[in-house]
Amino acid sequence: MKNLYSLLLLFIFISSNQAFASRVDTVEVFSASMNKKIKTVVIRPDDQKSKVIPTLYLLHGYGGNYSNWVEKVPYIKALVDRYNYMVVCPDGGHGSWYWDTTPDFQYETFVSNELVEYIESNYNVCKHRTGRAITGLSMGGHGALYLAIRHQDVYGAVGSTAGGVDIRPFPNNWDMSKRLGEYAANKEKWSEHTVMEQLHLIKPNSLKIFIDCGYDDFFFGVNEELHKKLSYLNIQHSYLNMPGKHDWNYWAQSIAFQMAFFDQFFRN
């Protein structure tokens, strides 16, 4: 692992000194379910030409927005050129956790239905689950797994980096009680909205799964438990730990592993 980590740092250094040829669009996607336009960043490879390419939907974390990935990890544009698939970064609202809850928080519907329809109507991308994947960081890591498990007809692969994959140990954090009600009075609802209690819905050999988390991350414990439960249920997945905290220093490293994983999925 130490050698792998060193190679990753070298790759980051080389990529950060390259000119990025990929193109970045910021679009406004209308959500009928929420009756508003939602900003979304689309990163396209330079040499797409007329080829139909896959799409990775990449979600931000709590307190973030649609521009986080391209602004805080600019070498993601080099990764898009390297792997030649499109990356789509939607705005997930403030503390939506990518659920459908109140009328103004319908982010499950937006990301997995409305956004996919918009992207596939306006860009030359694959329109099949074998050409779609989803991942994200923190709240977005939970969101990616939650959406992929519930929409296995839409996504063929899913990832999570430092994801809050079990929300129940954190009942007073990150606006979750605003979406679901207080945990003590709504335990069943919280269980229905946490990734940890959705694993039984995964169909055999349906999803390719990649999870990573830093050793010093406050979500490390719940990711360890998710890895154990997936293993116990004999659900195949890849699981990676590296040094790192819950910050952009870690996510800037982990996205290289995430995107390499999805490149392999798309190639297969």
Rank of each mutant, 00 (worst) to 15 (best):
L207P: 06
Y62L: 09
C213Q: 07
Q18R: 15
Y250A: 02
D216M: 08
S231P: 05
E108H: 12
W190H: 03
V80M: 07
V41G: 10
V24P: 12
I167Q: 02
S6H: 14
F210W: 12
L137I: 15
M34L: 09
E188W: 07
I209V: 04
C213N: 09
L145N: 11
V80N: 10
L207S: 10
G61I: 08
H94C: 00
S33H: 14
F20G: 09
I209H: 03
H60A: 01
L58A: 02
T135K: 10
F20S: 14
A144P: 03
M34R: 15
E197N: 15
T102I: 02
I14Q: 14
F220R: 15
H94T: 06
G93D: 03
D166L: 01
N113T: 14
H227L: 00
F210R: 12
M196H: 13
H60Q: 12
C89I: 08
A133C: 08
H128N: 14
G131S: 07
Q264K: 15
S177R: 12
D47I: 13
T55R: 08
D100T: 09
P54C: 04
Q106W: 03
T102D: 10
G214R: 14
S254W: 02
T26I: 13
I149V: 11
S160K: 09
F266L: 05
N68W: 08
D212P: 11
K49N: 14
M1F: 12
S31T: 07
K2P: 03
E197V: 01
S112L: 02
F170R: 14
Y146E: 03
K39V: 05
R168V: 09
T102V: 02
Y5A: 11
K37R: 15
D25F: 10
S96L: 03
G214K: 13
I167E: 00
K189E: 04
V222I: 11
G141A: 05
A78H: 12
T130H: 12
F265N: 06
F30R: 03
A19N: 15
T109E: 00
L7T: 14
V125P: 09
K203M: 03
F265I: 04
N122D: 04
I12L: 06
A32Y: 13
E192V: 01
P171R: 12
L147T: 11
R150Y: 00
V80C: 06
N241F: 05
T194V: 02
N186R: 10
W97E: 05
V116D: 07
F210M: 07
N223I: 03
F13R: 15
G181Y: 10
F261H: 13
D166V: 02
L58F: 02
T55V: 15
F218L: 09
K189A: 01
S238C: 09
Y123T: 04
P169D: 01
V125L: 03
G244I: 07
E224R: 15
G136Q: 06
N122P: 06
R23M: 09
E117A: 08
D104K: 14
I12N: 08
K245N: 10
T194P: 02
A256Q: 12
A184T: 13
N68T: 08
H246Q: 06
D153S: 11
Q264W: 07
D91P: 01
A184Y: 11
Y146G: 04
C126P: 00
L10R: 15
Y98P: 07
D247Y: 09
N17S: 11
P169Y: 04
C126G: 05
S16M: 12
M34C: 08
L59T: 10
N186V: 01
K36T: 13
L58Q: 03
K77Y: 00
H237W: 04
